[in-house]
Design a protein around this nucleic acid. Sequence first.
DNA 1: CCGATCACTGCAAGCGTTTGCAGGATGATC
DNA 2: GATCATCCTGCAAACGCTTGCAGTGATCGG
Lengths: 338, 338
Amino acid sequence: MVGIADVARHAGVSTATVSRALSGAHNVSPATRLRVEASAAQLGYVVSSTASSLASGRMKNIGVVVPFLNRWFFASVVEGAQQALQRHGYDLTLYNLTGGLEARRSVFEHFLLRQRVDAVIAVSLELTEHEVARLHALDKPLVGVGGPLAGVPTLTVDDLAVARLATEHLIALGHTRIAHIGGDKAFDLDFNLPTNRRFGYEAALAAAGIEARREDYRPADFTTAGGYQAAKQLLGRPHERPTAIFAASDEMAIGSMLAARDLGLVVPRDVSVIGVDDHEQAAFFGLSTVAQFPRQQGEKAVEVLMEELRPHPEPRTGLNINMPFELIVRASTARPPE
Amino acid sequence: MVGIADVARHAGVSTATVSRALSGAHNVSPATRLRVEASAAQLGYVVSSTASSLASGRMKNIGVVVPFLNRWFFASVVEGAQQALQRHGYDLTLYNLTGGLEARRSVFEHFLLRQRVDAVIAVSLELTEHEVARLHALDKPLVGVGGPLAGVPTLTVDDLAVARLATEHLIALGHTRIAHIGGDKAFDLDFNLPTNRRFGYEAALAAAGIEARREDYRPADFTTAGGYQAAKQLLGRPHERPTAIFAASDEMAIGSMLAARDLGLVVPRDVSVIGVDDHEQAAFFGLSTVAQFPRQQGEKAVEVLMEELRPHPEPRTGLNINMPFELIVRASTARPPE
DNA sequence: CCGATCACTGCAAGCGTTTGCAGGATGATC
DNA sequence: GATCATCCTGCAAACGCTTGCAGTGATCGG
């Protein structure tokens, strides 16, 4: 192993100077810096992060906690965060809560506490007060993505507005009988997201003077299969059939389109469908949707964190940052049948 | 911060003993161990991983490198690995190569070298000799998932056999005109996987005395959309139409099913479709497929690594481990039309 | 021309564990 | 009862960096 001492010797300076030169401190003469950098490069020296961390207290490492990885949304957030971190020279260590309560406990009682991360990004996670406290105790910055977290800076899309936008799009097309496939109550990993989207949907209807019928709402589990089932039920009643469906996720929306087809209905002639996410398959299915941009959310979370990590000049700033979303109209929505 | 010294004082022993007791060394009396553990728990002590790493040279951390995260297969492998690692008390730090060559270089020339990981798992990555050498130089164990890697223990499914199995299934049903949607040549992130699957397909045909027609092969990009396009072409010729399609991935197979429908064909009456992966959507679409088990691959990779990490009694063992796969017959395959 | 200021650089004390070595008990052996 | 192995435990030296502090010339203002 080539250590800092080797570089120091090779460059004819002290290890202190090497350290400073390589970490970009300002109090090193340009000539020395150049010499040191050359030596380091020549010897293939890379600073030992453990030693550096121990001495400095900085880990150059961020913990990212996700409920699971296996879904497009989460994977995209993580991917975005990873790339942003890499640009900043940070590592990303991944904590996954798929393992159940046991795993969750061990993450919060153990893994996150062993001084390995400078900060934590929690994605779509409803943290308990105790968990937040645990992290605050270390005073490691914590930022959330997706859903307000008490006392924690968080990036969210305004789910209410998203749902309203989608619903208004259908209303503007002339639909008056609009069904909604929302989140299952049990599926509460994501905050009150399902609830918020439902509220947005109802708000839009109300604003247009349309009554929200109870039988036009179906909960599902955010999967294609779940959306399919729900849509089958919604569209199965020939006379009482809604002319449009707003699904709280693209996966469910795609399921709905397939259900419609299987019922002999043509989208969008007989029924319009709109989702949320702009899932990678949405374009393929010609699905209208309200896009959110998970990669960007990951990147933005990192930015916020980097700011938070900077030697605090002022106390921390705004606690809640709204992320953009955008209506994308494709082929799955149109005027209702006459 | 509560350090090891606090625990030592509280338990009335030396820090050395605390360290040994907590790390499960065998030379601590049961009574002492209990006392130490109690003190540690009471004080909420968690060992500082940096200090521990610096002193011991063990990081309790594994680097996992993936080409991208955004695909079901990779996300699943990572998820499996993550959970297995967590059980072993290891962290997982994630390196993503989506960022292009620049990112790739920085990962291999910098991130992996700074003594932060004990070992590396490379998923579906074709490493250059130089990259492998770089890692070997640190003599960090390295295991690959998916595709043989020169001189590196690797977990693979036998792609040739997988393809043969799928094709044989179609042949056994009576099909003689079987098309194949394979991997695009440009899409070479995954080893020669596309090529191997094609060979398996051709081998099965040959073994059954069926000639493989060039026009029955179409390359695509492993997406649903790509599969859709390819299938449209394959099925677009009324007379020359194949009665079955073997797609090299479930995404492409699903695209094929949708293409068939749009052409007015009924699956499996008019055309059978089979894929590879057992993607999470496969069951929903009733897609027959050859399953591989990415989560398990991730877990197994960790096991192999843990073995490799154990103080080498013997030189390393077998270099290539074959992972299981399995034919799953659903509704998308049947006898060909009369 | 002198003291003050400034820009660099080196010295050495940590950072919080782990672990080889040695010492003290205790028990086993003859 | 002496000898020796065995089992625990403590001492203190690493581990490889960072950084406060002090020291050295050089530069500058008066």
